[in-house]
Amino acid sequence: MLPVSYYLILSALLFTIGAVGVLIKKNPIQTFMCIELMLNAVNLTFIALGRYFGQMNGQMYVIFSLAVAAAEVSVGLGIIVAIFRTRESIVVDDANLMKS
């Protein structure tokens, strides 16, 4: 097996790319995809370290992370559809009601 650092660095790279994507994309669907990418990057870390220590725990975390991601995607896409239906636009910057 390769040194675990390789996997960690790859994971860090993917995570950073995902984070940048979240910050610069205006299309919420793409923002969502970037979030999925970040989750995958973390999953890679779990599995690599689980293999490294020869334990199941890392993989178990990944299973739960998968479940959470699936739930999040279903709800998140539901929200996007609902927003689109009410505002006829899904540009993230248009949704700024949080400003008083």
Binding site: A19, V22, L23, I24, N96, L97, K99
Partner: peptide, 17 residues
């Protein structure tokens, strides 16, 4: 600082990270 823009807030989160 309160722009109401979600991406700005995400940026602040990144800064925290």
């Amino acid at each position: 600082m309160q722009t109401g823009n979600a991406r700005n807030y995400a940026l602040v989160m990144l800064a925290g990270m």
